[in-house]
Amino acid sequence: MLEARLSQSMVLKKVVDAIKDLVQDCNFDCNDSGIALQAMDNSHVALVSMLLKAESFEPYRCDRNIALGVNLVSLTKVLRALQNDDLVTLKADDAPDSLNITFESSTADRISEYDLKLMDIDQEHLGIPDTEYAATVTMPSTEFKRICTDLQAMSESVTIEATKDGIKFSCAGDIGNGAVTLRNYQNVEKEHLNVDIELTEPVSLTFSLKYLVNFCKAQPLSDRVKICLSNEVPLLVEYLITGTSYLRFYLAPKVRD
C-alpha cells in the first residue's frame, strides 16, 4: 500500500495547477523511491515528467509499484479544499480503485478526508535519453514567464538563440518583430536574480510560444528555472520542487517546412 505525507502540501497543488492544462488523465506511478508522472499532451508535442522523491515526504511508504490513474480536473476539485500549511496525506491500496486524500490543519483541529475515484489509464511511456545539452541557462522563473507572455502577444513562435554573447528570444509577427537578450549576470546579494549561461556550442531553435507559456504555469513552484537546449532536439524546461524533486517539460522544436 501507499502512504505518503507531505508537509509542504502546496507543492502538490502547484504541480497539478502547472500541468492540468497540458494533460488531463495521467498515472501517478508510486514505488519505493517516490511518486513519478510522465504524460504527453494530446497533440504529442510536449511531455511532462515529474518526480516527487520519497525524501520529500515524511513518512513515505510504498512497498509495491502502484499506478494511480488520476483525472487532473477531478484532483483539482479536491485540492480546492487544501489550505495553506495543511499537511496532506495520500493513501491507496495495492490495487486501488480510489485514492484517499487527507488534509490536516497545522493546529490539528480540522481533518478533511476525500476519496478520489481512480481510472485505468493505458499510458505509453517514452524513454528520455540522457542528453549533454549545448546550452544550459538558469534564470529567474518570473523573467522567463514575462519574456514568453510578452512575445506571445506578438507571435506564435519564438526563436531561442544561445551564443557566447548571451541568450536571445526573438519573434516575428504580423505587427512587427520583438527580441529580448539576456547576458550572464551575477548578483551576490540576490542570487535568485542570477542569469547563468553555460555554452559548449551555439544553438538556435524555434518553439511554439503557446506551450512555453503553458509551462510557465509552474513558476510558483520555484523562483529559478533551467532551460536546456541542443540543436534539433526537444527543449527541456526544469523547475526544482523540493530538494531534488523536479517538474520537467520537454517541447519538440518547429522546423522549416
Binding site: 504527453m40 504529442h44 508535442v45 510536449a46 511531455l47 505509453e124 511511456h125 517514452l126 524513454g127 528520455i128 535519453p129 513562435s157 524555434t206 511554439s208 532536439v233 526537444p234 520537454y250 517541447l251 519538440a252 522544436p253 518547429k254 522546423v255 522549416r256 517546412d257
Partner: peptide
Amino acid sequence: TRKQQSILGFFAKS
C-alpha cells in the same frame, strides 16, 4: 513557415 515536430520523433516508446 515552420512545421511543429512531434515529441514522438525524439523519444522512443519504452
